[in-house]
Every structure is written in C-alpha cells, then in structure tokens.
Nucleic acid binder design. Structure first.
Length: 478
RNA sequence: GUCCCCAUCGUCUAGAGGCCAAGGACACUACCCUUUCAAGGUAGUGACACGGGUUCGAAUCCCGUUGGGGACGCCA
C-alpha cells in the first residue's frame, strides 16, 4: 500500500448511523440498547447520528409512542444530529422510486386477493415448504375489476446474496429462498423493507446497526438497494435482549416503557451502563460513565449471543453510579423522585440527605423512601423496634440523651458524635446501646443513616422534639 | 415445516491453539469491619451442551447432534 497522506476525515468516510424505531409499541430496553450502540458508534467516530421514525403502519402508529421515543431519548441523553424524520412525510420520494421500479420492470402489480394468498400459503405449509409468494402475477395479469393492486418487487430468482455482517461475519442467502415482497400496499402506504432501503440510501447511512431479528430482511433490502443503484452499507446485527427468564422480552418482564425505569428511580447513566455491558465488554470493566463508553465502544467487540436481563445487576449498577456521584449531583434526582411520591422537599438539605443515603439504597426510589422520615415525623414507631428500644427501661437513656444533646454547642455531625461517645462512655455501655433508642426515636425504625448525620440533617429543634415524643411514648399509657 | 442466527458458572461476561487444574461482575453462603442498615474487605459454592475430527496441544479451528432464538405479514 502507498503511504501517501490521507485526510483524517474524508467526506466519504464520515460515519452516519441511525436509530429507526417504529411507534407501534413502547420504546423498551431492547430498543434503547440498539439506540445506545448506534449512537455510541457515531459519537466514537465523530460521525452523525440520525433519528428516524418508521410510521408507515398507520393503523398502529400512535403519537403517544412517538412521544415516548422522543422523551426517552432525551432523558437518556442520546442526542441526535438529524431528524426526527418521519417516513410518512417522505411518501413522494417512495412513490417516485416505485414508479421508477414499475417503469423498468423491477416491480409489478399483483392482483392476488387475500383469499388467494391464503390458500397458496396453506398449500405450501401442507407440503412442508416455506410459505411464500409464488410469483403468479410476475408475468403480468389483467387487472381484476374492483381490486386495487399491490406493488411487488421483482426479486432476483437465481444467485445468492452475501450479507457481510460486522458482528456475525458473512451470512449467505439463496435468492431462491426469497420471494417478491410487497412494497406498496393497496391502500397506498409503502412497506417497511422498502422504505428502510430508500431512507438508508437517501440519508447516506454508512452503518446499519439494528437488532438481529432483521438479519432475514437484509438480503431483500440489498437486492432493492442494488435495483435503485445504491451502495451497500456496513451491517451490524445486535443480539437480542431476553427477559430475566431467558425467554422473549414481554410486558411481564422488561418490555415496559423506558420511562418506567426513570420512574422506578434509575439514573439514565446507570441504565445505559448496564445496557452497554449486555453484549459488549471491555475486559473486566463493569462501571463506567457514558463518555467513557463512547471512547471504548467498538461494534466489532459486540457478542453474537442473546443475553438475559438481570434486574439485580441493574440495581447494583445504579447504586455504583449513585455512590460515585456527590450529594449535590444527586439532589435534583432525589427531588424529582420525592415529587413523584408527593413529598415536598423544601426546607431540607437534599444534598446532605442524598449523601447520607447513597450507599445504602440501590435506586432513587429507595432513596426517597428511606429519606421520608426527614420530611415527615414518623406517624408510628415500627412495633418491633419500639418494643426493643423504646420500652420503659429505655427511659433513663432517652432522658440522658435529651439532656446531653440539648446542651450541645454546635449542632453538627462531629460534635454530635463526640457527645454520643462521651455519653456512652459515661454510662459504661457501647455506642449501640444509646444509638439505637435514639435512632428509633428519630426515624421511627431501627434503620437510618449514621445517627450523628441523622441528627445533623434533622436539626436541633426537630431532633429534640422527636426525642421528647419518644420519652413520652416510653413512659407508656399504662 | 423451511431458511437464518446462537451456544463458557443461575445471570452478564473474559478468553481471538499452549499464559486456563478457565479470570472478573451480579446473586448466594461464611467471616471481618461496625452505632442500625448499607458500603467495603476476605474466603467459598458454581461453567467451557454433547459427539466426532484437525493438531504435539482445543473453551478457542472444522463437521455433526442436541438445545435455544429469530424470520417466513398488504407489522416493523
């Protein structure tokens, strides 16, 4: 090879990828993973990432689903450089290609009725053949009165198509296995395989990264692409994501809207981290930020086999991300989560609360739940904890606690801690003996962040008030 | 049924012929730390689907079997 200098970025080498969901269902975790890899590939190569909505199925496409896609992508931070394009806005272009195909014989009208197609299919199945259109209208057929024909692409009958897939290697298909697919429905709507082909070519997509459920569509698309004089892009078919039980993703598992993960308290960066590790890895690296992923990601390192969702690991990954963030960074997320639970976070130091809880909760939702007592005085003591720590015998400890704390000079964690250890020493007991009753008095249960931090966050007045209430409770009605 | 894809611990994975009596992570168990809960630390249980080749040597290459998945639509 020559050693002449090549421009670092040639126009022809600009990487262009796209994410092309259909708004017929919710954007779920599987779609997000596809979007992530496609996006990361473009970003890694400083290319262009395009969002395209495939809405040619007018019956089932909904505005709602479109909205989830847009909101989901924004929430995750998967930004696009072009689009969103809508296929329904490109009908003129599709029509032009179809007319061109019709004109040069690369496509033809088919007048077969649904019944005719159905019996053809039944016969083939009976013969244990792969059901497919037998091409009976190929040679031309007189128009059937009252029937609006569909348009079929005339697929080559002989030869083979080789799909050069970056993750799977070459995949060979015999043209004899393919049939003449419908590219224009009788209602005038073009179909998926055709639109994808036109769009990927028009939008100069260089790398088609999508789920491997599309492998079988690829040879048809290549044939159509060649028919319109296009060049074949690089294909990368990603393995599927399965439900936790290893079966197809369904609503029961994880095929829920990606926005549900937001509502369940997952950080976008953590979800993307988890998804990035499904089918891809970089040595033993488990926890990484999105920017790091972009730097490391390479579609050639993607696995071929499907992977199952592991809910525990999503949660673990989320906690790892929370622990790497500061309380201040976490605060807005916690505020949002508290809002979902109808709690007004005003008047409290959310950064301090998040800091205190981030290593003891796995999701923001758990964090919001665990921090409830900071915002609302516990309505009742957790029975077991109360029985153990707020009985009549606890009264002396609580009273001593009240006196010691009330006399403290600076109400902050360090001084509070000092005060508590001194009190424990004075009474000749371990810290646990006084921390637990105090904890139950403040939090209502035996679980809370470290007691000195809890006191500090709660503040002097509120802490002493809760202590008084606990003292009264320990005195008991009877 | 036909075509296509896939196959390492329960799960996610490392492994691109010798460095592997198979490494890491989640989960699980035990212990340590400890003011609760966590986090953290240490140790442990646990896998190359099976059968043939190729090779001095195979988790790694080839073939077959089995198992799983996908596609076969006027859905995408």
């Amino acid at each position: 090879m020559g050693r002449e200098a090549r421009p670092v970025v040639e126009r022809t080498t600009e990487i262009r990828t796209r994410f092309a969901p259909s708004p017929t269902g919710l954007l779920h975790i599987g779609g997000v993973r596809t979007a992530l890899f496609s996006w990361a590939y473009a970003r890694h190569h400083r290319g262009t990432f395009i969002l395209r909505i495939e809405d040619t199925d007018r019956e089932r496409s909904t505005d709602d689903a479109v909205q989830v896609i847009l909101d989901g992508m924004r929430w995750l931070g998967l930004d696009w450089d072009e689009g969103p394009y809508f296929q329904t806005q490109r009908y003129d272009r599709y029509r032009a290609v179809i007319d061109q195909f019709l004109g040069d014989g690369r496509a033809y009208h088919c007048y077969c009725s649904k019944e005719e197609l159905e019996s053809m299919r039944a016969a083939q199945l009976a013969r244990k053949e792969k059901p497919r259109y037998d091409g009976r209208c190929r040679g031309g057929r007189e128009p059937v009165p009252g029937v609006v024909p569909v348009v079929r692409f005339r697929n080559p009958v002989e030869g083979e198509v080789v799909v050069h897939d970056v993750v799977h290697g070459p995949i060979v298909f015999q043209n004899s296995e393919l049939d003449d697919l419908i590219i224009l429905r009788s209602d005038g709507n073009p179909t998926y395989n055709f639109c994808v082909t036109v769009d990927d070519w028009d939008m100069r997509i260089t790398h088609v990264i999508r789920g491997d459920d599309h492998i079988n569509n690829t040879p048809r698309q290549i044939n159509m692409l060649r028919a319109m004089g296009g060049e074949v892009p690089v294909y990368a078919h990603l393995p599927m994501i399965l439900g936790p039980d290893g079966t197809k993703l369904s609503k029961r598992h994880g095929a829920v809207s990606v926005l549900q993960y937001r509502d369940e308290g997952y950080l976008p960066g953590a979800l993307l981290n988890y998804l990035g590790r499904l089918g891809w890895s970089h040595g033993d690296l488990e926890v990484f930020a999105l920017e790091e992923f972009v730097g490391l990601f390479d579609v050639e390192a993607v696995n071929k086999s499907a992977s199952a969702l592991n809910v525990d690991k999503i949660a673990w990954t989320n906690q790892q991300h929370m622990m790497r963030m500061s309380g201040a960074q976490l605060a807005p997320f916690l505020a949002e989560q508290l809002g979902r639970s109808g709690i007004d976070p005003a008047g409290r130091d959310l950064a301090a609360i998040a800091e205190a809880l981030k290593e003891r909760t796995r999701t923001l939702k758990e964090m919001a739940e665990g921090s409830q007592f900071f915002f609302r005085r516990p309505e009742a003591y957790e029975p077991k904890a109360a029985a153990k720590h707020l009985g009549a015998d606890a009264q002396p400890v609580l009273a001593a606690l009240r006196t010691a704390l009330a006399g403290i000079a600076g109400w902050e964690a360090g001084a509070l801690h000092e005060c508590l250890t001194q009190l424990a020493e004075a009474r000749g007991v371990g810290l646990g003996k006084i921390a637990q009753p105090l904890r139950v008095a403040l939090a209502g249960s035996g679980v809370s962040p470290p007691i000195d931090q809890t006191l500090a966050i709660l503040g002097r007045d509120e802490s002493l008030a809760r202590l008084d209430r606990a003292i009264a409770f320990a005195a008991g009605p009877a």
